[in-house]
Amino acid sequence: MTCVSMYYNMNCRCTNSGNMMSRTDVRVGSECGVKSVFTVPTALFILTDDMQILTNSPTLVLRILKLNGIKDTNALEERTLIVGQNEIMELLKGSLFSKTPITDIVLPMSSADDSGTLRETRKFFASAKCESDALPRTQPSQNVSSDSKKITVKAFVQKSTNRILFPQTQHDFIDFILSLLTIPLGQVQFLLGSSTRLGSISNLYRSVSDSENVEYMKSRDTIAKLLEPQIAPHYLSKYQIFSLSQQKLPVFEKWLVRNEIKLSVCNHSEVCPDTITTFDPKGQDSFVKGPMVFIVTNDLEVHTAASISIISILDQMRIPVFDVEEQELDIGMEEALSILKATLTSTSALTNGLQPFLKSRPKQET
Rank of each mutant, 00 (worst) to 15 (best):
V4K: 03
V4F: 10
S5I: 06
C14H: 08
T15H: 14
G18A: 08
S22A: 11
T24I: 11
C32H: 05
G33I: 06
I46D: 01
I46W: 08
P58E: 09
V61G: 00
L62Y: 04
L65H: 05
N68I: 11
I70A: 10
K71F: 09
D72F: 01
T73R: 10
T80G: 04
Q85A: 15
I102F: 03
D104V: 10
I105Y: 04
L107G: 02
G116F: 12
T117A: 10
T117S: 09
E120Q: 11
T121D: 10
A128E: 09
A128I: 13
A128R: 15
C130Y: 06
P140Q: 13
S141D: 07
S141G: 07
N143Q: 10
N143P: 00
S145V: 12
A155E: 05
K159A: 13
T161E: 07
T161C: 03
R163P: 00
I164W: 01
I164D: 02
T169L: 03
H171G: 02
F173C: 07
I174F: 00
D175P: 13
D175K: 10
F176W: 15
L178N: 14
L181D: 14
L181P: 02
T182G: 12
G186D: 09
Q189M: 13
F190C: 03
R197V: 06
D210T: 02
E215G: 07
M217G: 09
S219V: 14
S219W: 09
D221G: 08
T222Y: 02
I223E: 06
L226E: 02
E228P: 00
P229K: 05
A232E: 15
A232F: 13
H234P: 01
F242M: 12
Q247P: 02
V251L: 15
F252L: 15
K254D: 03
K254H: 06
W255A: 05
L256T: 14
L256M: 12
R258V: 09
N259K: 10
N259I: 03
E260G: 00
K262D: 08
L263E: 03
S264H: 13
N267Y: 09
S269Y: 04
E270W: 05
C272E: 07
T278M: 12
K289P: 05
F294G: 05
N298M: 05
N298T: 03
D299L: 08
E301R: 15
V302Y: 06
V302G: 04
A305V: 04
A305S: 11
A306W: 00
A306Y: 11
I313H: 05
M317S: 07
F322C: 05
D323W: 08
G332E: 09
A336I: 01
A342C: 08
T345R: 13
T345N: 15
G353P: 03
Q355T: 10
P356F: 05
K359M: 11
P362C: 02
Q364P: 01
